[in-house]
Write a protein that binds this DNA or RNA. Structure first.
Length: 531
DNA sequence: GCACCTTTGAAGAAT
DNA sequence: ATTCTTCAAAGGTGC
């Protein structure tokens, strides 16, 4: 974790190696990203229209899709920039000691008074997205309501208005799991970015509580007010269901009962649901502790609102495609923020729930239908199943929207983050976009779940993706999954600074892989053609 | 009402 | 050691 060296620079860029990457491409990248974002929308839009809305008039959709210049979006961008900058400045220690990272700059504030619909979903027509969202306290609809985690818009406004992207006092906000002094005491924060605060003890621990319940975590004043007022009072069913009225069970905790029905203690809260007796039996005891969000999820949470705001599409599947694409178009530094954040979240999560295992959640969801088993010979013949259609992300006329590739085909430009990595001057955005078709459209076997780059060190663990290659970074290796890796960004901040140096072995490896990957490019064409 | 879709990443299970 | 599976968010869609 380069930036964890602390002391060193006062921002991400303090790292010389990082600077070298950043300086060269950042400016252009921002521009290109803006452009590409619009293109993303246009392309995806058109593709989606082509795919699933054949009946809809393309011209109409065209109009709908074209990102409308909005004043609020502009300000949003500025604010976002502000956050990003603030983040950079604060990242010296690497632990986000100050601001909630730029990645969480949103408050999904449904319009001023009533943010959420009764079903917990934001009203698409009225929602207003403001920056500053507390990720893990972003209580999803129903659960939120039932948990009465509901900050009023007023508070939200307070935060927003109090200097919107105000950089919180270091001790003021912990992006994710604010801890009460007591909680902090109990749970030594591994990261150091959670600083005990004047926070009141906001949450009473349910009697049969959790060992390290998020609910036991307290928030600092501002956060608590934020959260406690997350929802307008009338939307809060019952102030008491075992938890403190502000009782913010950690968002990661969604007891089965909570998700569908507030858990055990919520017996009093029965107005909200059927008793759901069967569920109770086995699961009520254990609250459903959600998995910590990974980098992309964090990114999604942040950016979804923006994407939704920019286009008329509301379908999450479509939005997610865009988000996935944008994710790849992020600069390494930007992605690194999310990787780092995700890493911290995992860390904290593991601290809070030492005994928790991802396995605990297995089977909590309905089994997913197997979508990767080709049933017909034809399907097995590399033809994608109709169900997951290839999205023509790279229409022939728009195959390349990066300056470097504008003159060439997909084959002549680095299409991978690794490639981009190899040429710092080239914005990752443009390259990665070219890699998109591959990652997005090719799943000959359905959900080819390639091990993505795992964080090196996997939260202190062994890198699951440790490839057999001699590469110093797992993601650099080229093996049978090279195609899958094409679009994989590298969580840069997880790499030692020395590896980030253009002259480092890592960089060299990247260069090497770049060439190799270039050779794999045709794959993207092949796979893409499969629709 | 619920599963699906769609994305990436992490973790665990399976091979 | 590698590959596969599941889940995390989200909300429209379809059954």
């Amino acid at each position: 974790m380069p930036q964890l060296n602390g002391g060193g620079g006062d921002d991400l860029g303090a790292n010389d190696e990082l600077i070298s990457f950043k300086d060269e491409g950042e400016q252009e990248e921002k521009i290109s990203e803006n452009v590409s974002s619009e293109r993303d929308l246009d392309e995806v839009k058109s593709s989606l229209v082509n795919e699933s809305e054949n009946n809809s008039s393309s011209s109409d959709s065209e109009v709908n899709w074209r990102p409308r210049p909005r004043p609020e979006l502009e300000s949003y961008e500025k604010q976002r920039e502000y956050f990003a900058e603030a983040l950079r400045r604060q990242q010296d220690g690497g632990f986000f000691k100050g601001p909630p990272y730029a990645g969480y700059p949103f408050l999904m504030i449904p319009d001023i008074t009533n943010p959420y619909l009764s079903n917990g979903s934001l009203s698409p027509s009225t929602r207003t997205y403001l920056q500053m969202k507390w990720p893990l306290l972003d209580v999803p609809g129903t659960a939120a309501l039932k948990d009465s985690r509901s900050p009023t818009p007023g508070h939200l406004v307070m935060i927003v208005s109090s200097g919107i992207p105000r950089t919180p006092h270091p001790s003021e906000l912990s992006p994710y799991y604010p801890l009460s002094p007591g909680a902090v005491g109990q749970i030594p924060h591994p990261l150091g970015w959670l600083v005990p605060q004047h926070g009141q003890h906001m949450y009473s621990i349910p009697p049969g509580g959790f060992r390290h319940p998020y609910p036991a975590l307290a928030m600092n004043a501002s956060m608590s007010s934020l959260v406690s007022s997350r929802f307008s009072p009338h939307m809060v069913p019952h102030p008491s269901h075992g938890l403190h009225q502000t009782g913010i069970p950690h968002p990661a905790i969604v007891s089965p009962a909570i998700k569908q029905e507030p858990n055990g203690d919520n017996a009093s809260n029965s107005t909200h649901g059927k008793p759901s007796v069967p569920v109770k039996k086995e699961e009520e005891r254990k609250p459903h502790i959600k998995k910590p969000l990974n980098a992309f999820m964090l990114y999604m949470k942040e950016m979804r609102a923006k994407v939704v705001a920019e286009c008329t599409l509301k379908e999450s599947a479509a939005i997610n495609q865009i988000l996935g694409r944008r994710w790849h178009s992020l600069s390494r530094e930007e992605q690194a923020k999310y990787y780092e954040l995700a890493r911290k979240e995992r860390q904290l999560h593991s601290q809070l729930y030492p005994g928790w295992s991802a396995r605990d959640n297995y089977g909590k969801r309905k089994k997913r239908k197997r979508d990767n088993k080709p049933d017909s010979p034809q399907e097995s013949n590399f033809l994608p199943q109709p169900k997951k259609q290839c999205v023509p992300y790279l229409p022939s006329e728009k195959m390349c929207d990066s300056p470097t590739s504008s003159h060439g085909s997909m084959l002549d430009s680095p299409a991978t983050p690794s490639a981009a990595l190899a040429s710092p001057a080239a914005p990752a955005a443009t390259h990665s976009e070219q890699a998109q078709p591959l990652s997005l459209t090719t799943k000959p076997e359905g959900r080819t779940h390639h091990p993505h780059f795992p964080l090196p060190g996997k939260a202190s663990g062994s890198s699951s993706n440790s490839s057999s290659s001699s590469s110093s970074h797992p993601s650099i290796s080229l093996h049978s999954q090279s195609a899958a890796l094409l679009s994989r960004p590298i969580p840069f901040t997880t790499l030692p600074p020395s590896l980030l140096s253009p002259s480092s072995p890592f960089h060299q490896a990247a260069l090497h892989s770049h060439h190799a990957l270039m050779q794999t490019q045709p794959l993207s064409l092949v796979t893409k053609s499969a629709e």
